[in-house]
Amino acid sequence: MATIRDVARHVGVSPATVSRVINGVPGFSADTRERVEAAVAELGYEPDTLARGLRTMQSAVIGVLATAVSDALASQVMSGIESAARSRGYTVMLGRAGLGAEHAPSYLRSFKTYRAAGVVVISSAITGDMRRIAGARLPLMAVAIRNGDVFPSLAIDDEQAAYDGTRRLLELGHREIGLLAGDESSMLVNAPRERGYQHAMAEADAPTLVERGNSLYDSAPPALGRLLERAPRLSAVFALSDEMGAAAINELQRRGRRVPEDVSVLGFDNTRTSQHVHPALSTVAQPLERMGEQAVFGLLDGTWRSRIFEHRLIERGSTASAPSPAPSRKRNLP
Rank of each mutant, 00 (worst) to 15 (best):
G95R: 11
A39S: 15
E102M: 05
T67L: 07
G98P: 12
S70K: 00
L108S: 07
S75N: 03
P47F: 06
S59Y: 13
P47H: 06
R86Y: 09
D71F: 12
H103Q: 15
A68P: 00
Y45G: 02
G98A: 09
R55S: 14
E37I: 05
E102A: 07
E37N: 12
L43N: 10
S106C: 02
R55C: 08
S70N: 01
Y90T: 05
D31G: 00
F111S: 07
S75M: 04
A101S: 13
S87F: 07
A116D: 12
A97I: 10
V69N: 09
E46H: 10
M93A: 15
A38E: 11
S87C: 08
K112M: 10
Y90D: 12
L43G: 13
A74Y: 03
S59G: 14
R33P: 03
A117I: 01
E37P: 03
R109D: 11
G100V: 00
D71E: 15
A116Q: 07
A41N: 04
P47D: 12
Y45C: 04
A101V: 02
Y107E: 08
V61W: 05
A97W: 11
D48C: 04
Q76F: 02
Y45P: 05
R96E: 08
Q58H: 14
Q76D: 12
V36P: 03
R33A: 15
T91Q: 09
A74V: 05
R55F: 02
R33D: 06
T67P: 02
L73M: 14
H103T: 06
Y114M: 13
S79F: 00
V119A: 05
S83H: 05
A41V: 05
L108Y: 11
T67H: 01
K112Q: 14
V92L: 07
G100K: 00
V92T: 15
A72H: 03
M93G: 11
L73R: 01
A38H: 01
A51T: 11
S79H: 00
A38L: 01
G53T: 04
S79G: 00
D71K: 02
A84D: 06
L65S: 03
D31V: 03
V64C: 11
R115V: 01
V92S: 05
G98F: 11
D71Q: 10
D31L: 01
L108M: 14
S79N: 00
V40L: 06
D31K: 01
A41L: 06
T56L: 12
T113G: 10
G100A: 03
G80M: 11
R35Q: 15
R35Y: 11
T56Y: 07
L73E: 08
R33Y: 07
L54Y: 09
I81F: 09
Q58P: 05
P105Q: 08
A101R: 00
A116G: 07
E34G: 02
A68Q: 04
G118Y: 04
R52H: 09
R96G: 01
V92M: 08
G118M: 05
R55A: 14
Q76L: 07
R115D: 04
Q76W: 00
A51G: 15
S70H: 01
D71R: 07
M78T: 12
